Amino acid sequence: MMLPVKPHELFAHRVAEAYVLHLVSINRRPVYRYSSGDIEVDRTFLMTLLDGYLADRRDESWRFRFYLRLLDDSNTKDARVVFSGGRIPKLSKRGIRYMNAFIHEFGDMLVDIGGRDEEGMMTMPKSEDEHLSI
């Protein structure tokens, strides 16, 4: 049995998918170029991070409208296309700026409270007690 998907979750997923496709189009892989190294992302991570962050601050209807504004709603047609089986989501300029800033802030948070493992990868703190002892 499939549970119904709420509109804000669907559009958060579309924003996350559009951002991954944007990153791949400019970097050839789904990474955000952060000052201390690349941050690799996928749709599930981005959707969870984005909606989890905003869920504490805004209600579902506000988030739905916000995600909708981040997506590009233009319907420009490509003259070379003879049949369209669907369109990939695309971020608006505002959406690209917001998601870049959002992931940059996440990177700043990792630098501030996270650590690095033996391979040099940034990590999340293991527990709140560990963060408080720093």
Rank of each mutant, 00 (worst) to 15 (best):
L10V: 11
A55G: 04
M109I: 11
L49Y: 06
D78K: 08
E40H: 05
V5L: 15
S35Y: 08
D108V: 11
R80I: 07
L46S: 02
I26Y: 05
N100D: 15
M121P: 02
R87L: 01
D51M: 06
R33I: 06
L132F: 13
N100A: 05
S74H: 09
P125R: 14
P4C: 04
A18Q: 04
E105T: 10
M99T: 04
F83T: 08
H22R: 00
E118C: 09
N27F: 01
S84T: 11
R14A: 15
R94Y: 06
E130I: 14
P7F: 06
V24K: 05
F83W: 09
L49N: 08
D56A: 11
L23N: 01
L110W: 09
F64P: 03
D73I: 07
A16Y: 04
D129N: 13
E60N: 10
L21I: 03
S35G: 04
H22G: 00
G86D: 00
V15F: 01
M47N: 07
G107W: 03
K90N: 07
L23C: 01
S25P: 00
D112T: 12
S61H: 08
F106Y: 15
L91H: 00
D38Q: 04
L132R: 15
D117V: 06
V111C: 07
M99A: 03
R43E: 13
M121F: 14
F83K: 13
R94E: 13
K126R: 15
L91V: 00
E9H: 13
Y32D: 00
R33C: 02
G37W: 02
F102W: 01
K77P: 03
Y98F: 15
L46P: 00
I96K: 06
Y34H: 09
V81H: 02
K90C: 09
R63G: 01
E119I: 07
P125A: 14
G115M: 09
A12V: 04
E130G: 02
T123Y: 12
M121L: 14
A101D: 12
V111Y: 10
V81G: 04
L49H: 07
S92M: 06
L50K: 07
V24P: 00
D129Q: 15
R80A: 14
R69L: 08
P125Y: 12
I26G: 06
A12E: 04
S35N: 06
Y98E: 10
I96T: 08
F45E: 03
E128Y: 14
D129V: 12
I103H: 06
Y34L: 03
L10I: 11
E17K: 12
A101L: 09
R57H: 09
V41G: 04
D59Y: 03
V15C: 03
P30A: 11
D117Y: 06
M121I: 11
Y34R: 04
Y19H: 03
M47G: 07
D51P: 03
S133H: 11
Y67W: 10
L71H: 05
T48D: 09
A12T: 08
V41D: 05
R69M: 09
L68Y: 07
M2H: 12
D72Q: 00
M124T: 13
D51W: 04
H131S: 15
L3H: 12
F102G: 02
A55H: 05
L54K: 07
M2R: 14
D78M: 07
D129T: 12
L91N: 00
M109H: 10
F83E: 12
A18G: 05
N75R: 11
I103W: 05
R29I: 05
Y53Q: 07
E17G: 05
Y34I: 01
